[in-house]
Design a protein around this nucleic acid. Structure first.
Lengths: 144, 144
DNA sequence: TTTATATAGTACTATTTTAGTACTATATTG
DNA sequence: CAATATAGTACTAAAATAGTACTATATAAA
């Protein structure tokens, strides 16, 4: 497990789609059609992304949503934070005092390390990166 | 977000506790007392860990649970897999065909990359590591 | 062999989170 | 003013998670 929610996943698909033509305005309806998801769901997500400052919106005819920031500046970490809150693998991995077990728990700091690794990995991927085909030869390595 | 479940978190605390004296046998009751969690919850987890082959069990007086494998050979990745199934950040990140959006989704491979990074980070931490105090100077770096 | 102890298994309930939907209000364009 | 598109809110349904209770079975020691 260790999942992002379906809605977050949809969110990245929506944003990646928009990132192909970053200066266009997309209506909820047209995105829903392109991605084949219910318009209500797409619409809900676009509202959230708009409130969080990732998208600008415009009502009325010719209205729709549009990326505010260039695709290379929007990371997966940002998208996840916007749609489901700060990345925190365990309750105690984000900050102290959230975990009842803390006093008996020698492992908080290790969870924080894991969390940092995950965060960095997510921060490293931008919407632009999402559109690239990954090179087969590419190295993937973690150092802790 | 991007969490492991509370139960998985408890599980790691239990196992880390057992790893301090890896050759001892621990009863569910004594573990529950040490960790200050309800015995029913601890018991449930121990059963799961036992069925999955991480612990051996023995009934009756002097019975209890015990680590089968040395603490340095049990990774967080393993514990998470045992308690909540394979690590998969998105439905499509583990294997093909689980995601309805696949044909419209250019980003599956990138999710798989993220997943690999997370997996490696989790695989790199063992029960033994969990007990160490992390060195302040330690580098944490991710390369994708 | 009996008793106390401890796990095995199962089934169930409650809670929380996630997902999905519906409806009304408001802004924009022509 | 009419058509279109987002804003906001509230709600329902479904799924996952967490927690509990109870019966069965194995073990060890008296």
């Amino acid at each position: 497990m260790l999942r992002v929610s379906k809605l977050t996943d949809y969110g990245t698909v929506i944003l990646a789609h928009m990132a192909r033509e970053p200066d266009r305005t997309y209506s909820a309806a047209s995105l829903a059609q392109s991605i084949e998801l219910p318009i209500s769901t797409v619409s809900k997500l676009l509202k959230l992304l708009s409130r969080s400052g990732l998208l600008s919106s415009c009502r009325g005819k010719q209205g729709g949503y549009r990326l505010i920031t260039p695709p290379q500046e929007i990371s997966l970490a940002k998208v996840i934070e916007v749609l489901e809150g700060p990345v925190a693998v365990t309750e105690c991995s984000r900050r102290r005092g959230l975990c009842q077990l803390e006093s008996h728990c020698a492992i908080r700091q290790q969870w924080q390390g894991i969390n940092a690794v995950i965060y960095q990995a997510l921060e490293h991927i931008s919407l632009e990166t999402l559109l690239e085909k990954p090179r087969a030869s590419e190295k993937r390595r973690v150092q802790i």
